[in-house]
Design a binder for these strands. Structure first.
Lengths: 224, 224
DNA sequence: TCAAAAGTGTTTGTGGTACACCCATGG
DNA sequence: CCATGGGTGTACCACAAACACTTTTGA
């Protein structure tokens, strides 16, 4: 790739895309077509174009890989170790994305293949991507503990049991049903759609987010 | 991916350096010697060198400006708007630093002058530095609410009243003396030096951090 | 002995957690 | 009528917040 004739690092973005599929927290990875790390799995990403903001670059990559727009996207951290890319100096700005529908994935130019992987059973990753992914996972869990971001992983309408399951999958621990429902109710961020599921057993009410709900719920301070 | 011949963005680091001086939360700014924004105040920073990690670049800038090493330093956010620097594309990785001693500042090559400014009375800043500074201030306040990072702003030994004042200055609100002392005691992060102040009134015991204290105190979750 | 700052406990309220049964529907 | 998943309330405990007086020293 671009040999740095001039001594500025190349700037790339990498987007860690999480979703919930099959009662599992999964992340989208692409298989690299070219050296270095040819054939290894990697977090989707690419170089920032000349007149494009970082977030725009991240959204472009996200669109190329998944076809989705208007999803939750936040900047995570910037990784700039001089040796993180064997081709030369590349500083990468990592983003975290949460998508709801487990839609068909589209491999971009840079990848021969793309698929969802359980975060609990990951393959060996290219570059320092294992580190980036762990960082993203930690941030996601942390975020769920004090914000309502977890809803971004769900379809537009969902039952209370579904959302509780989503939280349990991401956090990796069971939650109490009545307490969970009380907190959701108190947060006042959902509204009934009016519809219900028709499955086995008693039908469940469907909910959606209130458009005007505030996603960032502030914690009480612990210290001092 | 479009690998046309274009210049990668330049990569810089900017370091927002906070300290406590004169019962005030202050930030170190440098006056720019050259265009653009000649004569305007700016957050100290500079370009990342060829074989230097981002954090190393930030520490180098910090050292050039203040002469200090081994201080608290954390990556904040990366600002990459294509128009943020009129000279051309510059992506900057912002860092937050907390220093204790209000030491003499040393102007680096890039600045004709450097001084501490109260965060409550800032001059007009170059580039998008006002935005970066506000972001840093928000992060500092947030951090103080759930970690013991505030100690980094104090000299190696201090009284309980001093540290309470430090928290009050940064948070901008008064705290209850007995509750504050109880929380500090429960956190179990201080030890007595054995010495006391000799001022007017009753002498106060001096404390220092325990070397083995854990700085990151985890919050209880609020949601769900 | 007075002024100045340090130091010290208790009470009350709120929020967190644990816990078990009845309800609505389809087969 | 039974199996399946949906939906509901209370009691206890721990932590947070509010609050005022005594102690130690220097001048």
């Amino acid at each position: 790739m671009a040999q740095t004739r001039y001594h500025y690092p190349a700037t790339s973005v990498d987007v860690v895309i999480f979703t919930l599929r099959a009662d599992d927290l999964q992340v989208l990875l692409v298989r690299r077509k070219h050296a270095p790390f040819e054939g290894r799995w990697a977090i989707p990403g690419g170089f920032v174009e000349a007149d494009e903001s970082l977030e725009a670059a991240a959204r472009r990559e996200l669109k190329e890989e998944t076809g989705v727009r208007d999803v939750y996207l936040e900047q995570l951290y910037t990784f700039g170790d001089p040796k993180r890319d064997p081709r030369g100096r590349v500083v990468t700005v990592a983003y975290l994305a949460l998508v709801s529908a487990p839609l068909a994935v589209q491999a971009g130019d840079d990848a021969s293949d793309a698929r969802w992987w359980s975060v609990y059973k990951l393959p060996s990753l290219a570059f320092d991507h294992a580190k980036i992914l762990q960082y993203a996972l930690q941030r996601l869990r942390y975020k769920l503990e004090y914000t309502a971001a977890g809803f971004q992983l769900l379809p537009p309408s969902f039952t209370l049991t579904e959302i509780q399951k989503a939280y349990e999958i991401v956090l990796g621990e069971p939650l109490d049903k009545r307490n969970f429902r009380r907190r959701i109710a108190e947060a006042d961020i959902l509204e009934e759609t009016g519809a219900s599921t028709l499955s086995r057993g008693r039908p469940a009410k469907l909910y959606r987010f209130r458009d005007d709900a505030v996603a960032e719920v502030k914690t009480r301070r612990l210290f001092p």
